[in-house]
Design a protein around this nucleic acid. Structure first.
Length: 556
RNA sequence: GCGCUCGUAGCUCAACGGAUAGAGCAUCUGAUUACGGAUCAGAAGGUUGGGGGUUCGAUUCCCUCCGAGCGCACCA
């Protein structure tokens, strides 16, 4: 590819000019502004200091060497601005891009940055005390997309859901369920959500009128987990493992972790409890491992859990947490290090914090709480919009920013959702292919077409986007930032629509028609590939939008 | 009080330390007897919260102030 060619040429030029080879901070990237050529490098500016000459002077030496042995496709090399070296390329470089896309219709842009890495990605993991709420959909969509991103870089990825089925919250849940079942007052800070009334009725229908506490605990837990699975299936996310916290206690994993920490001299007694000396390791303060009543804290259990994931063979752990849990990040990572796992620079687990979703309805914030009973579930959302809309809405922005999910905008006015804009682009290009086939216009083998007839700016813009796609994917994976894929595909879709408008594909000119049909195919590959990473479908056709006036009026 | 995260166009958000900070929505102007108009073209909109620093270059990194959200349990 062109990036490698340019890098090699630059490397050689630096040597020829008697300069140091490229080091950190030096980049060869596509230009943002077409006035600056097609690709650019900042090498002269970075080297200026050590060379002891002005950047433009250094650039001049490099350019002289570059011109002596110009790499393929390079039409011109220019020095610009503070010392950028700009490469002006012939369009032929883009025809190479097109060939590369066509050669890998399913995996174009994928890489091997994480080949050999076995990642355990834990996300969602909402407590099994009720249905997934609407805001939790963010972790569903983001986690699944990150898994896809990592897999596209060669990692083996395992999606895992942790069920906190051993804590006090589950007891409270059971007590609440039982209270609803017996039509008694809810316990102090019980779950007030209306869903428990429905569950109690379902339990009565299934088990009769003599359910005891133990049966209720078991049935309630099973019912909730079943519901969680169903909700996730509705949005198309599959977890490879549903891990039960109880297992850790039953197998003695928790006790084993405690023993290891004691052996390492990281624990001490105070006030009848057992503490981890975590402040000395970099935590804000020391943490309790074993309460004075003899039970272990979440931290101890979590340590056992993460150690188990590694014991199961995963070489890297990633957790996605809500930002409201950020206070626990340091504790867990520091304690893992006390167990000899991970380093300060590369902690295990890697924890991604995501800002919580703010739900609005008609511009008014809706506060959600299973406790107080205000529950808008993911399932409620999926009753109104299809999974693609829900997913892309959650993937529009980075997880560092708090996301406002306006239920009215996303549901009632869903036609404005960007997902349709992108999917429509895919439906359009698919339509062109169908149209051509119906008209008896066969696409000759790619090797037999002449791509050089593709000279329209719209056509070249499509190929430029596709040229950047692999790097974008690699970067999005490294940053665990699927919203970059969303940004890319929205921009790409915009170029597709522009191309569609200005460049008729099926014409009287067979050569142009053939080349454009292949360009359309490359475009389809880019759209479908990126949407697949996002977990959004790429439809070949869409239902025609009906004009608002055609909607049956409430008065009529 | 301590800590984490954030502050970019009217609104919602982008932007590997790079050149003139970009999109969508909303507003205003235009384009269609259609390879699907759920589209396209254009206009307008900014002291990137304030102030310092690092450097050839800062929305990005560091310090400080202001503002917002969230944590600071022998709950998870």
């Amino acid at each position: 590819m062109i990036a490698d060619d340019l890098a090699a040429a630059l490397d050689a030029a630096l040597t020829a000019a008697g300069l140091e080879p490229p080091g950190p901070g030096i980049e060869i990237v596509p230009t943002k502004n077409r006035d600056h050529g097609d690709w650019q490098t900042n090498v002269a500016m970075v080297l200026a200091k050590t060379v002891g000459a002005p950047p433009r002077e250094v650039a001049a030496r490099i350019v002289a060497a570059l011109e002596a042995a110009a790499p393929r496709h390079v039409a011109r090399v220019e020095i610009a601005g503070p010392g950028f070296i700009n490469f002006v390329l012939a369009p032929t470089w883009l025809y190479d891009v097109m060939a590369a896309v066509i050669a890998e219709p399913v995996t174009y842009g994928h890489g091997d940055a994480y080949a050999g890495l076995a990642v355990n990605l834990e996300f969602v993991s909402a407590n099994p005390t009720g249905p997934l709420h609407a805001g939790g959909g963010r972790w569903v969509a983001v986690g699944d997309a990150i898994a896809n991103l990592l897999a596209a870089q060669g990692a083996q990825v395992h999606r895992e859901y942790y069920l906190n089925d051993a804590g006090r919250q589950l007891d409270t849940f059971t007590a609440s369920l039982l209270a609803r079942y017996r039509d008694e007052p809810l316990p102090e800070d019980g779950y007030q959500g209306g869903y428990l009334i429905d569950m109690a009725a379902a339990m009565r229908a299934e088990l009769g009128d003599d359910v005891d506490a133990e049966q209720a605990a078991d049935w309630g837990y099973q019912a909730v987990v079943r519901e969680l699975r169903d909700d996730l299936a509705r949005i198309g996310v599959h977890f490879d493992t549903w891990f039960s916290e109880r297992t850790l206690h039953e197998r003695g994993d928790v006790a084993a972790v405690l023993a290891a920490l004691r052996a390492g001299g990281h624990t001490y007694e105070r006030d009848g409890a057992e503490w981890l000396a975590s402040e000395a390791l970099g935590d804000q303060r020391d943490r309790v491992l074993v309460r004075s009543n003899g039970t272990t804290t979440y931290l101890t259990n979590d340590l056992a859990y993460h150690r188990d994931k590694l014991a199961r063979g995963w070489t890297h752990l990633i957790d996605i947490w809500g930002a409201d849990h950020h206070g626990q990040v340091k504790s867990l990572q520091v304690a893992m290090r006390a167990l000899g796992i991970g380093t300060e620079a590369a902690p295990e687990p890697e924890i991604m914090l995501g800002q919580l979703v703010k739900l609005e309805r008609g511009g008014v914030v809706v506060r959600l709480s299973k406790r107080t009973g205000t529950v808008i579930t993911l399932s409620d959302i999926l009753d109104e919009v299809d999974p693609d809309v829900a997913r892309l809405t959650f993937l529009l922005q980075g997880i560092d920013t708090s996301l406002t999910f306006d239920l009215d905008v996303v549901t009632a006015a869903s036609m404005e959702n960007p997902v349709y804009y992108v999917q429509y682009a895919h439906a359009r290009v698919s339509s062109i292919a169908r149209r051509a086939a119906a008209a008896g216009v066969a696409r000759p083998p790619f090797a037999e077409i002449d791509p050089s007839v593709l000279v329209h700016e719209r056509e070249l813009d499509l190929l430029r986007s596709l040229a950047e796609y692999p790097e974008m994917l690699r970067h999005a994976a490294a940053l665990r930032a699927p919203h970059r894929v969303t940004t890319w595909v929205r921009d790409f879709a915009s170029r597709v629509h522009g191309f569609y408008r200005d460049c008729r594909v099926i014409t009287d000119d067979p050569e142009l028609t053939h080349a454009r049909l292949w360009l359309v195919e490359a475009t389809r590959i880019g759209l479908a590939g990126s949407l697949t990473i996002l977990g959004v479908s790429a439809p070949e056709s869409m239902a025609r939008l009906e004009a608002d006036e055609d909607e049956p009026d409430a008065a009529g």
